[in-house]
Design a protein around this nucleic acid. Structure first.
Length: 1272
RNA sequence: GCCGAAGUGGCGGAAUUGGUAGACGCGCACGACUCAAACUCGUGUUCGAAAGAGUGCGGGUUCGAUUCCCGCCUUCGGUACCA
């Protein structure tokens, strides 16, 4: 071996001519590459093991020592599994689309592909140096068309699929079409609905579906596709010119680049991840991930169980008829976020139809519905919503609330009048009044008993009334008044017993009223016959829909709060409140997310002037607007229960709104939790309602007994929730509901450097490409910037259009071609399925073959940073589940075990920077120039070595140090004395100011905390050192302080692996990174310790060599001690690997090596096993020694040593003898002794008597083979 | 605020099921080798002079607690008016 005798860099003495890691590592890197040592075979007869690292983004900065930490751990494990005989898949590739390369391209004009390739080359070079056992033949890059062809293909599969709740999985869209053709679609209640987004889609019959034209069908299907075009509020980043995913935004700024982000409504491709919310939640229980990541995902999905509850709005008489119109507006009430967005857009449509109060019902109905429907976030605009009003079901239109049942009931009402109604009608229809009176006539949304349209007089006969009917009648009356009607009421008794007086009163009323033209004869009657259907006896005004997890507190509702963006706000605000509400809404909308976040404690809100009716008590409840309610969650409206919710409580306090306690905390809880501030309340009858008494606090816990709550009284919270939901459901006020915080994922980016979305538009309708037209490659553009009219960069591409291939049935437009989608896919697209491509990276016919996917299956071990907790790790689970549903793969979860490596923190070196003081007596006489100079000198920092600085601050200098510091500062003080003497310089004031600042200095100028002043001051970055005085320690060294913080260029604390590999070798680096501490923990980087690990490898090397550095091992029997050391080590190493405790693994190698050194063991058989053990941690040195031992082939595939416990059997044990649990001395005893004998032996000891101090032991605990404890 | 993780020498950390606290390494001190330095090797190194004390703090369970239980404090990570 040439390496053996060659001198290493350090080897200028014979003593140190040994382990030449540079030669060894170079040699084996080459050997592995040439022999493709780590190539994974697809030999399915062997057991497989899949070890994966998180996909790196090849940034221009290259790797620092923190990056390879996880790669080293996974590599050790992969190599361990190979030793165990597994067929190991351990691939690596690059997530190579992304913003930084594009930003660089914008700045420099360089094609991002070029910079990306350069960055990858650098990454590869760095990775190669560390000796990873990646199978590079399987490398994938997301920006490679051969790869993104399949990303596009998956997009198409998602587009062509929907989520079927009946089967609870994704299916081809054809199965949905089959359902439409057979059953049609029956609206809200239809169980093929998913996700909630499309729930307001209008019902249609099978026949109607078949009659839809192409566009209508496409629009309808768009409601169900798993990737769809829709309008959504997005995180828009103006600086980057693109939208960002929620997880790419941190505190209102972009994660990459730190630019401000704002909310904006945009037409976007989205992924219906919400369809999988429940399965993504359930799946967490089946995988071996850290609890913190699972918890983060659970929070992100944010499931909450509760009830959807409708509150009827009581329109205020002051509300203008035009505004108050709109039956449609109430039917769905408040909306989810997507809907909300739509409602903002639909204003136009709404305004357009809301003209007269007496247009035909049908028209009103459908228009209002249509405009509302358009808000369903399905990528429509105002035009669409207008178009949709022709009542053709598309995904925009539809009437949700009309049911045949109601129609029948309405007719029944008319056909079966009460006796009183019947009696009155017989009088009125005789025309004795001289005016036309109508019976059971529809006005707006109400069926009135009788009406004279030409006089606008409504005559009502009340049945048996009870309390809350009064309130409902009040609403009805008020509503009719706003429509320009006068309402008179009679009781049943009056009609039945005194019909004459009733008729007389009616006549009087009619005489006093002016005439109106009765122009609605046919129309209104017709409507009544055809489509007007109302719930019996239940009039409807607008409704506010709220989501609550606490339906049990329904009787504690004292107000309802709407989000400022809520669509009903503008409609229900009374004229008196309008100015105030408008101002508030405008202010809230303009507040940035960040502002709202920073300002959570400021309570703000405004009263709308309107009320809702309590669904159970009929009480009036004020409607407020408050920005503590978020439009994006639930329905954008809350029922406020201030007594049992912190935020509601604060709001109520602030605006002095009633607080009604409805839950009495359990007695013991109150006592336990009571503090002066939370004095238990007295919950007696009549005490329920309180107005802002300071000492009362909300009780938000889910325990206690219900009070002041009618039918819920006495129940505990859990039971009350159940009963409340049941009652809400039974009375048709709402229903049980599960809500998720998870939003659909926006899938488009207005950027160049990403996968093109394989879609073209024909008449505005999006179509996906055919599979054989993939990949749709990224076109060339002149600039990587948006066009002048704000289109994404892809719009710049020349003549980049879709020309249908054979098979498409297109017409004239063909020649011109169709426009492609101009946005590209987000960064997470390619990384959501890459783990599958590694299984079959060169397959040109499929994204992965079924057989290979079945064999390689789940990733057994996945290592990466926890920063991907809610991004990548959620999206890839989603895609995996989707591909599983479609039968392409056989596993539902992609990553079986996940380990998050902790961050390696940098250790920044800090200079202690101190300013100086000096005062002048004649301040006023300072020239401007000198005054400036004084300021400058005072601002100037001087750098004092750490230990001296400490003493200066604590005024602890000795004589010698004092004069040393003075000498160091003399030049600057002399200068000051010269310059400022004439201003009556106060020389006593000339000293260091003890205010201490710090300044970072590059760690490359630091060795063992000592600054290399000479080199550092030559660096332009630290030229300030030249201008300042430097005060070193007495021995002339300058000692730096240090601080542990993130490794970053700006902190000058970045340690690259390259330098360390150069200096110590890859094996040392690998061992040291593992040795630092537990893999999952964050830990500071400290280069000092690397020497210890390096010298361990040298000692290990020396075991195989004699003092002349010649390879020398003995062939005889190993000593008993050596065998014991070996087998102890085999066991420990294996145990540590199994529990991913790599740091203790390294320790155990050191311990073993120390022991072998002591034993002077160079036994071949023992050392051979040690080489195999070490090979996963330090593969280069292991290969070299393996070869020297005369073994054939790579150590990679040697069998892992077998642990034999026989070698560890001991005949005696050194018992620790404790007194009261405190170990005092040790005693070696044979292991054959039983407890009684051990006790006897211990008690016989002199030492025992000494520690007993003459007392008799109370008890002696003996655990054979473990411990002796004497209790005194 | 909520959720998660963690607090052990001068430093990184070990102690796997309740059984000798501080393995291993760094640093430091001393010694050997050397003209000398580096390297290497050896010895010591929780605090305390000692008795003794000691794993963030205060309690508890136990013969025995870094480990289990209760209550706090601090640090780090995630998340945040989520109804």
């Amino acid at each position: 071996m040439p390496t053996l005798l060659q001198c290493s860099v350090h080897a200028n003495t014979t003593n140190y001519m040994e382990y030449d890691f540079r030669e060894i590592e170079k040699k084996w890197r080459k050997n592995w590459a040439e022999n493709k040592t780590f190539s994974a075979s697809d030999d399915t007869s062997k057991p497989k093991y899949y070890v994966l690292d998180m996909f790196p983004y090849p940034s221009g900065a290259g790797l620092h020592v923190g990056h390879p930490l996880g790669y080293i751990a996974s590599d050790i494990y992969a190599r361990y599994k190979r030793l165990q005989g597994y067929n190991v898949l351990h691939p690596m590739g690059y997530d190579s689309f992304g913003l930084p390369a594009e930003q660089y391209a914008i700045q420099t004009g360089q094609h991002p592909d070029k910079t990306t390739k350069e960055n990858i080359a650098r990454y590869r070079d760095q990775l190669d140096k560390i000796g990873f056992s990646f199978d590079w033949d399987r490398e994938v890059r997301t920006s490679d068309p051969n790869y993104y062809k399949w990303t596009q293909w998956i997009f198409i599969q998602l587009f062509n699929s929907w989520y079927n709740p009946r089967t609870n999985k994704a299916e081809k869209i054809e199965t949905l079409i089959a359902i439409f053709e057979k059953e049609g679609f029956s609206g809200n209640g239809h169980d093929i609905l998913t996700g909630g987004v499309e729930k307001n889609l209008a019902p249609f019959t099978a026949a109607e579906w078949k009659n839809f034209d192409e566009q209508q069908q496409q629009e309808t299907l768009m409601n169900f596709r798993l990737t769809y075009l829709g309008e959504a509020y997005v995180n828009w980043c103006p600086a980057l010119g693109t939208v960002l995913a929620n997880d790419e935004v941190k505190d209102g700024f972009s994660e990459r680049g730190g630019h401000p982000v704002e909310r904006k409504l945009m037409r976007q491709w989205s992924m219906r991840i919400t369809a999988y919310a429940q399965r993504l939640l359930d799946g967490l229980d089946t995988i071996d991930w850290s609890e913190s990541i699972k918890e983060a995902q659970r929070n992100w999905i944010g499931r909450s169980e509760g009830a959807l509850l409708r509150f009827q709005v009581m329109p205020h008489p002051d509300l203008s008829p035009a505004l108050s119109k709109g039956k449609g507006a109430n039917t769905q009430g408040s909306l989810r976020s997507e809907e909300e967005q739509g409602s903002l857009r639909s204003e136009k449509g709404k305004g357009a139809n809301a003209q007269g109060s007496l247009r035909s019902e049908e028209e009103q109905d459908t228009n209002a519905q249509g405009s509302l429907q358009s808000g369903k976030g399905q990528g429509t605009n105002a035009q669409d919503s207008l178009r949709s009003s022709d009542n053709k079901p598309g995904y925009l239109t539809g009437k949700a609330e009309v049911s045949k049942l109601n129609l029948i009931r309405a007719k029944e009402m008319r056909d079966n009048p009460t006796p009183a109604e019947s009696k009155l009608w017989s009088e009125l229809k005789t025309k004795q009044l001289g005016l036309k009176i109508r019976q059971q006539h529809l006005i707006d949304i109400y069926i009135v008993d009788f009406v004279c349209l030409s006089k606008r007089l409504v005559i009502e006969v009340d049945g048996d009334i009870h309390d809350h009917q009064v309130d409902e009648d009040l609403v009805r009356t008020q509503n009719l008044i706003t429509k320009g009607f006068k309402v008179i009421r009679f009781k049943n008794d009056e009609v039945l017993n005194n019909i004459g007086a009733v008729i007389k009163q009616i006549k009087q009323e009619l005489n006093t009223l002016p005439d109106f033209a009765d122009d609605s004869d046919e129309a209104t009657e017709g409507v009544l016959e055809e489509s007007t259907v109302l719930p019996p006896g239940k009039e409807r005004g607008w409704e506010i829909e709220v989501f609550t997890t606490r339906p049990d507190t329904i009787f504690g509702v004292s107000f309802v709060t709407l989000a400022p963006e809520h669509e009903l706000v503008s409609q229900i605000t009374t004229p008196a409140q309008k100015a105030e509400v408008d101002a508030y809404v405008t202010k809230s909308k303009n507040r940035s997310e960040r502002e709202r976040m920073a300002d959570v404690n400021t309570i703000s809100g405004v009263f709308t002037g309107s009320y809702v009716l309590h669904p159970f008590t009929g009480k009036q409840i004020p409607i407020w607007v408050g920005d503590y309610v978020l439009v994006g969650y639930g329905t954008g409206a809350v029922m406020a229960v201030p007594a049992h919710d912190e935020r509601d409580y604060k709001f109520a306090k602030h605006f002095n709104l009633p607080i009604t306690f409805v839950i009495e905390p359990p007695k013991n809880s109150v006592e336990a939790k009571a503090s002066p501030e939370t004095t238990p309340l007295s919950f007696g009858e009549g005490q329920g309602e309180r107005y802002g008494e300071g000492e009362q606090k909300p009780w938000a816990e889910k325990e206690g007994k219900l009070i002041n709550s009618d039918f819920l009284n006495g129940l505990d919270v859990k039971a009350a929730i159940k009963k409340a939901i049941a009652e809400i459901d039974a009375r048709g006020l709402g229903k049980k509901q599960i809500n998720y915080r998870l939003r659909d994922a926006v899938f488009g980016r207005q950027r160049y450097w990403g996968e093109p979305i394989p879609v073209y538009y024909q008449n505005g309708t999006p179509y996906v490409l055919n599979e054989n037209e993939l990949p749709l490659t990224l076109p060339e553009v002149d600039k990587y910037l948006p066009t002048e009219d704000g289109e994404p960069p892809l719009a710049r591409a020349n003549n980049w259009k879709y020309y249908p291939t054979a098979g498409s049935s297109q017409g004239e437009e063909d020649k011109a071609g169709y426009n492609y989608e101009h946005s590209t896919m987000p960064g997470w697209a390619g990384s959501s399925w890459y783990f599958l491509r590694y299984m079959d990276p060169h397959n040109t016919g499929e994204f992965v073959s079924k057989e290979k996917a079945a064999y390689w299956n789940q990733v057994d071990l996945y290592i990466g940073g926890s920063e991907h907790a809610t991004g990548h790790l959620l999206y890839s689970r989603f895609w995996n589940k989707f591909l599983f549903d479609l039968g392409y793969i056989t596993f539902d979860e992609p990553f079986k075990k996940l380990i998050n490596q902790g961050m390696i923190l940098g250790r920044s070196s800090l200079l202690t920077a101190m300013p100086i003081n000096f005062e002048v007596g004649k301040k006023d006489e300072l020239t401007e120039e000198d005054s400036n100079l004084q300021m400058e000198l005072i601002k100037q920092r001087h750098f004092v070595s750490k230990n001296l600085a400490k003493k200066i601050v604590s005024n602890d200098l000795n004589q010698e140090e004092e004069s040393h510091v003075a000498a160091c500062l003399k030049p600057i003080f002399d200068e000051i004395k010269n310059r400022f003497a004439k201003y009556d310089l106060n020389e006593d004031s000339l000293k260091l100011n003890t205010i201490v600042f710090t300044r970072r200095v590059d760690i490359k100028y630091i060795d063992n905390d000592i600054l290399n002043i000479k080199d550092a001051s030559k660096d332009p970055l630290f030229s300030f050192l030249n201008k300042s005085q430097i005060v070193p320690e007495l021995d002339g060294t300058y000692i730096c302080g240090n601080e542990v913080e993130k490794m970053s260029k700006t902190y000058y604390n970045v340690q690259t692996p390259d330098e360390l590999v150069e200096k110590f070798g890859a094996d040392t680096l690998r061992l040291y990174e593992m040795f630092l501490g537990p893999l999952e923990q964050a830990k500071p980087w400290d280069t000092q310790g690397i020497n210890g690990v390096h010298s361990f490898l040298r000692r290990f090397w020396r075991l195989f060599h004699n003092s002349e550095n010649e390879f020398s091992v003995s062939d005889g029997e190993a000593s008993k001690e050596s065998l014991k050391t070996l087998h102890k080590t085999i066991k420990k190493i294996q145990d540590d690997l199994e529990r991913f405790s790599f740091n203790t693994g390294v320790s155990n190698f050191m311990i073993a090596t120390n022991e072998f050194t002591d034993q002077k063991c160079n036994n071949r058989a023992v050392l051979r096993e040690m080489v195999i053990l070490l090979s996963s941690y330090a593969p280069h040195i292991a290969e070299e020694l393996w070869e020297k031992l005369g073994e054939k082939g790579s150590v990679t595939y040697a069998p892992f040593p077998k642990f034999n416990p026989d070698y560890l059997v001991e005949s005696s044990f050194e018992y620790p003898v404790s007194f009261n649990g405190k170990m005092r001395f040790k005693l070696e005893l044979p292991l054959t002794l039983n407890a009684t004998d051990i006790e006897k032996e211990v008690m016989a000891q002199e030492n025992t008597a000494k520690y007993l101090e003459g007392k008799a032991p109370k008890k002696v605990i003996v655990v054979p083979g473990k411990i002796v404890n004497i209790v005194m």
